[in-house]
Design a protein around this nucleic acid. Structure first.
Lengths: 141, 141
DNA sequence: AAAATAGTTTAGAACTGTTCTAAACTATTG
DNA sequence: CAATAGTTTAGAACAGTTCTAAACTATTTT
């Protein structure tokens, strides 16, 4: 481990800046959750799973805060909500254009890069509406 | 209205046969729900909405039976379950190949014929799994 | 660097949609 | 028409999520 004084000096700096840029105060809870979420590659996680993981790591945070934080991060564009089954929301740390494989037996959720799926949506959206997003879920068994 | 005796003689016959063919006894409740669901064109409805509609029409049926029936009809291929938002399941009377427009503001759910959407799913499904279904949800705002 | 303020966290209650339970009931079979 | 197998039901239970209002913490003001 590198012990030069400038290395561990601002370990949260990037996350702090990111939160500030979306007008969220960098509280202890948000920082800890942001690191769990954003510093471990692409993840698909539910609120309860994230809460459990935080508690396991000794992070004191309530389930309510986990829910609040996930929604705030989603509004801020740091996360994306994925709905594949009723009664459970997944939050996806990959906010780039992509779709999903969902294994209905195991519950596994995996990304499909946007470039690997082409959707030709011929019909016009009804009346005054516009397309917000196109979700493709490839359900596996 | 035509009053010839052979017209109202077997009004439920088609639905009864359909239920029998999937090994479901044609009970009063199933018949009534089947007619509400299947004799009014393509519908997207939740269990609670269907229960409310049944009650409004004077059909005595419990919410538990509505849930049971919707799941049985779905297993039998008479309905299809559509998940577009967490915490609520829609049941779709259109079981043919198609996709959906979902207006996130109004909650409106509309069919897109399968022929009007082309999905080129390049990646192979992981390991031993196979594709059960591809759902395309065009989210509107 | 306090005090004031605005925003955040929290435990627990409340709520929503759904599933379960086991007793009563109904369709079908013998 | 009795036996049986399947169905319905009210209400309890449950899972995931949201709400509440009091305590707390970060930021701004003085």
């Amino acid at each position: 481990m590198d012990e030069r004084e400038n290395v561990p000096q601002r370990p949260y700096a990037e996350v702090i800046d990111r939160l500030r840029s979306v007008d969220l105060r960098p509280t202890r809870q948000r920082l800890a959750l942001a690191r769990l979420l954003l510093e471990h590659g692409d993840r698909h996680i539910t609120a309860e799973q994230l809460h459990g993981e935080a508690i396991d790591r000794g992070i004191r945070v309530s389930l309510a805060t986990v829910y609040n934080t996930l929604h705030q991060f989603t509004s801020a564009g740091l996360l994306r909500e994925v709905v594949v089954e009723a009664g459970r929301s997944y939050f996806d740390t990959n906010t780039s254009d992509h779709h999903h494989f969902y294994n209905e037996t195991t519950g596994d959720l995996h990304d499909i890069p946007g470039s690997e799926v082409s959707v030709t949506s011929l019909p016009e959206p009804p009346d005054g509406s516009s397309v917000a997003r196109v979700d493709v879920i490839v359900r596996l068994k």
